[in-house]
Amino acid sequence: MLEIRNLHVAIEDGSKKILNGLNLTIRDGEVAAIMGPNGSGKSTLSYVIAGKDDYEVLDGEILLDGKNLLEMEPDARAAAGVFLAFQYPLEIPGVATMTFLKAALNAQRKGRGEDELTTPDFMKRVKAGAEKLGIPQDMLKRGLNVGFSGGEKKRMEILQMALLEPSIGILDETDSGLDIDALKIVSEGVNALRSAKRSFLVITHYQRLLNYIVPDTVHVMSKGQIVRTGGKELAFELEANGYADYVTNAAA
């Protein structure tokens, strides 16, 4: 379970507040969607959960299964079960995708006090995961994300999530830059990972993604707060009416 209580966040130099007392609880197995206009603080929320240093947490707490994430380094958060699928996955020339996957997987296992995977076991897992997501073997030999298309990068994020088996997967605008076929593949990948123990936080501008990854709850974010919470039908309402109501009457 992820619990965010009264979260206040500014950008590092303190000049601008982005989150203003945000409260959000995501139960085990729940898929929560956050929708909201540009600049409402959606991506900031995902970065603060994952532990990026560019932000200053002024108040509040983030608990994952009772553990205080704000006291942990980003790698410790990952080992504790946080996975952020980046909106713009980064390219790392010179690090073969396979090398990276193995390093990440074993680092997390080590962080949890588990044994490293044997190479055949690792290979088997990667192969099976890649096949499901339509990722060809030669892509795994190339530098991580180097020369991959937008869709390929997003599929690679989902493959990483499948291998790392987080307790909460945060998808930051995973639908951006995807055509309809890629959107389907990525969504199927996410849906395959849904389980009673794993929750998701799906951040998106558009309702379209939620046709494929059907959420349990939808939260509307504006000016750094959750201003409305509802079921999946709330997404359709937003799609029809836009965010205008929330931008002008936020926190009303």
Binding site: A50, G51, K52, D53, E73, P74, D75, R77, A78, A79, V82, F83, L84, F86, P89, L90, I92, P93, G94, V95, F100, A103, A104, L105, A107, Q108, G111, G143, Q160, L164
Partner: peptide
């Protein structure tokens, strides 16, 4: 820094993430 965060968000401790980036850099 962004690349470093990406690697750390995948579970690599800081020193290991830096070493991986530098190794890639030298590898070229």
């Amino acid at each position: 820094e962004d690349l470093l965060f990406y690697l750390r968000a995948r579970g690599l401790p800081k020193a290991e993430a830096e070493a991986l980036m530098l190794q890639a850099f030298v590898g070229e």
